[in-house]
Nucleic acid binder design. Structure first.
Lengths: 233, 233
DNA sequence: TTACTTTTGTGCTATAGAACATAATTATAA
DNA sequence: TTATAATTATGTTCTATAGCACAAAAGTAA
């Protein structure tokens, strides 16, 4: 993990959600201990097996959290958008990172030492509850995901990924194009399938007029149909 | 959910882990609000879609947490052993239950209203941190599980389930027989496969002298080999 | 006991999806 | 520019595993 150049950023406007829960004194602690780091596209933020030291908050860009599985296959576990916190689970569980994180595109991250975070939340119950809620939400998503990835067929899994990407990163001004451009391989890793099947299924969707493709731009044409495909597996 | 008869139980010896974190006053609150309930074998404790009201702590017995997937197939998400807490995630996340829970065998459960729990943890930071840790551990397990269930082959998945059951419920006096008897169907739901494949693979393991079977009793003969099968998928 | 249901075991078939090969296209670098 | 690498696309083969059928065994009830 390379330390990029530091930078002064107004944390109050950036650490959304969390900032409101803090006293002025606690905010000062954060200000003194948080650092900002930039990551280039595809740069690793942390690696599977690393000892967790900092909580991270994505301020700008897109980050993917992934895991290496059997035979060098990768599985994208979750995608992070601004402003979302990540990288804290392993520390709380007293474990090394079970996942890796890398910048999907050029990204800005705010890092706070976990020791500071734990000190704060042991004194501030609202902050503690904030983490309880985040973890609870993520655990629910993980449970859903397990069933979806294991029981749905390829079409259902891909449809679901597309809807997930829409919900996470939104659409462009045209109100149809996904606001994230990813390689077919990433789409495959997100949907638990091989790259060729992602490509094939994607072009089936084009034939069925559910989506339209222009390179890595994916335009959702018939969202209802996509939802139907996702539901019925 | 049927209310079984109440009962007086010494919570201090039973609510392990959590009890030590509380003040005498807080303990009194728990004593006044916790109730004990018995569940018969296969009885539902809560259902997918229910609105969560209580945190549960399994005092005796075994509980399975599961999810209905595509086409009526069930997936066992996790297994609970004494003394473990469950049923609180959905409330924290402000959601209806995403999973159902049922007694795997005759079980005793301690129930505490979630409102009480939240009140307590908003005043007691150690209690809050207890939940943060539990959720963090469970989220890690869920992430691991996703990759295992999606990427490993049947043999690897079944081997892993057997090892998981051994770690969770331990062995009998002979030091080899799993201390839980489950139907082939449950083993299948736990390992994400059909019942026939669970049966088949199980008897392959017998042929390979990795395990021995006697009805629902599973004796682990060669744990190292089982670990190897689990690792290599 | 008998009748009936559930669980377990086994063989056969069908198929979703992986694995592989190869070409076309698009980036990236020199 | 040309050369090289990465990504996308598509066709073919192969196999793990689901799905089904049916029999045997075990458990449950009348």
């Amino acid at each position: 993990m390379v330390k990029n150049h530091k930078e002064i950023i107004d944390l109050s406007t950036n650490l959304k959600g969390l900032w409101d829960l803090l006293s002025e004194e606690e905010r000062e602690i954060l200000r003194n201990n948080a650092i900002i780091q930039h990551f280039k596209k595809n740069e690793m933020i942390y690696c599977e097996g690393d000892v967790p030291q900092e909580m991270m908050c994505l301020l700008k860009g897109k980050v993917k959290i992934f895991k290496e599985g059997v035979g060098g296959r990768y599985q994208i576990i979750r995608m992070i958008k601004p402003v979302q916190y990540f990288g804290y689970r392993a520390y709380f569980a007293n474990e090394a990172y079970l996942t890796g994180a890398s910048a999907f595109e050029s990204s800005t991250v705010c890092l706070v030492p976990m020791k500071i975070v734990v000190n704060l939340l042991l004194r501030n119950n609202k902050l503690a509850y904030f983490f309880i809620q985040q973890l609870s939400i993520d655990l629910g998503i993980a449970d859903e995901r397990t069933v979806n990835l294991t029981q749905k067929h390829i079409r259902g899994r891909l449809a679901e990924s597309l809807l997930f990407l829409k919900d996470s990163y939104g659409l462009e001004e045209d109100g149809a194009t996904l606001n994230i451009y990813l390689a077919r391989e990433d789409l495959a890793n997100l949907s638990n399938m091989t790259t060729s099947n992602a490509i094939r299924t994607l072009s089936n969707f084009v034939t069925e007029r559910v989506i339209a493709l222009d390179g890595r731009r994916i335009k959702i044409i018939d969202e209802e149909k996509l939802k139907k495909i996702s539901k019925l597996g």
